[in-house]
Simulated assay, not measured.
Amino acid sequence: MAEVSVYVAAETRGRGTGRQLLAALVAESERHGVWTLQAGIFPENQPSLRLHAAAGFRWVGRRERIGQLRGRWQDTLLLERRSTLVGTAA
């Protein structure tokens, strides 16, 4: 299991950079035998939630008051992605 984060500079958002980075991260994790990827995302970060959902992540829980954003405690949504390649060989 590995925890992941993808950050894209504001001036490059909306150009597919995040999608490319996350796809590369998923590919490398599978190449190295990582079965589960996990991400914690602020609920109001809808673009990141959509990005992760498109990469196969699913919502598995909510952690209350776990991180700060601009000095305020915030919940984070816990997402995970299970590999379709790792651990499938009999």
Rank of each mutant, 00 (worst) to 15 (best):
V6E: 06
V34L: 00
P47E: 03
E30D: 04
T88W: 11
R72C: 08
A55F: 06
L85E: 01
W73T: 07
E28W: 13
G14I: 14
F42T: 03
A53K: 14
G14V: 15
I41Q: 04
R31M: 10
T12S: 06
L25S: 05
L22N: 02
A89N: 11
L37Q: 01
L51V: 10
G56M: 13
E64H: 03
W73R: 07
T12P: 15
Q74A: 10
L85H: 02
R15T: 12
T88S: 08
V8F: 03
W73K: 04
L25H: 11
R13A: 04
W35N: 12
R81W: 12
P43S: 11
G33K: 00
N45H: 14
A27S: 02
R58T: 05
M1F: 15
L37K: 00
R82D: 06
D75P: 08
R13Y: 08
L79S: 00
A89F: 15
V8D: 08
R72V: 10
L21C: 09
T88Y: 14
L25R: 03
T76L: 08
A89R: 07
L49P: 12
T76K: 06
Q38N: 00
M1A: 15
T17W: 07
A90E: 13
P43I: 12
R58K: 01
S83E: 13
A27V: 02
V60E: 02
Q20G: 06
G67K: 13
L21D: 07
S29M: 03
V8C: 05
V4T: 05
L77P: 10
E30Q: 02
A89H: 06
A55S: 00
V34F: 06
R82E: 13
L78S: 02
E30R: 04
G67Y: 15
G16C: 03
A55C: 05
E3C: 09
G14M: 14
N45I: 09
V26W: 10
A9V: 09
G14L: 14
T76G: 09
A90D: 14
R50C: 04
T12R: 09
W73S: 06
L51H: 00
E3K: 05
R70E: 12
P43M: 15
L22Y: 04
R65D: 06
R50D: 09
R13W: 15
T12F: 15
T17N: 00
I66V: 07
L69Y: 12
R72H: 06
Q20L: 12
H52L: 09
W59N: 03
V26D: 12
E11P: 15
Q46I: 11
T88M: 12
Q20V: 05
R72P: 15
R82N: 08
W73Y: 11
E44T: 05
A55E: 01
T17S: 01
